[in-house]
Amino acid sequence: MRIDRIRLIVQAFCFVFLIYGGILGFSIGNAVPTMACIYAEDRGGACFLYPFQRFMSLPLSTLIGATILPFLIYLGTFFLWGLVFGKAFCGWICPLGFLQDLLTRARQFLGIDGARFRWASRERFQWVKYALLALLILIPMGIGNSLGGLPKLSGDWAVPFCQICPGKPLLPLFSGDTSHLLIDFSSPVKLALTSLLMFLTGVFLIGGFVKRRWFCLYCPMAALLSLFDRIGFVGLKKKGEACTRCGNCYRACPMEIREIADERDRKHMVTQDCILCMRCVEVCPENKALSATLLGFPVFSASAAGFLKRQGCAPPLPIEDFPHDSNSN
């Protein structure tokens, strides 16, 4: 079976679990590094960022005093999740990623061609996720502390990232909750944040339809998970000497990562935007040029035979054991 079909099934399962798991009493905690929205009533687990922003908004003395132990346990849980699954959260688990993939499928079903970034535009936006990450740490800190002698921010700024994350209005919709689809006029800050949220939600839906995984480029969670790109259990390796630089992987990459095709001397291919969807491995026609690895061992490698099979062409005899003996000479 094609990996992207398996992935869709896994995504659907995770989506149902993360949105409805709570009905059956399941929960995998509040430190899950994926956009499983805290506002979804029946959730089976919740996004790391909400409690994280809450922790950050505590006065610094409390954070490193009374709450240091819960905070460290909480960070440790996040670290374990990240270490084991890493960016696989983005490609295989994230509900917002799944929604974007569904939009892409809908577009493909309608036969509408997708859009791609120009190289320069894509590079121009890469700082956004780091800026969002910095803001979602600094703004909450400004609520509990007076940063650099500035006056403290009002409580309206609480959990600022969640206030503008398209998951907030969209994911609760699946449990029938429409209460976050609103523009809040109760204070100027809230008015600004909710207006921005409604705008971004629209952009999310339109952009996700037009371009694959378009919002993932700006996700601060991806910036956080990038910590595990080199040390995570799941990896993506490239064997440069087998690569012809045909560009199939780059064209198929939903994140349009150019390094995957162009860089031959690099072995670890999990880059800052990689979502470990393994689409590149699927469309690579060169034997063992790309491999998905688990703890360093290849679990799924590119092969000419596999490529042809997935492209709908079944060779009458297997051609996968070529080269026969790559270590001789």
Partner: peptide, 13 residues
């Protein structure tokens, strides 16, 4: 030797 890969079975791709 070199094979074209259909990613999305759409015109542009």
């Amino acid at each position: 030797w070199d094979m074209a890969s259909i990613d999305e079975p759409l015109y542009d791709d």
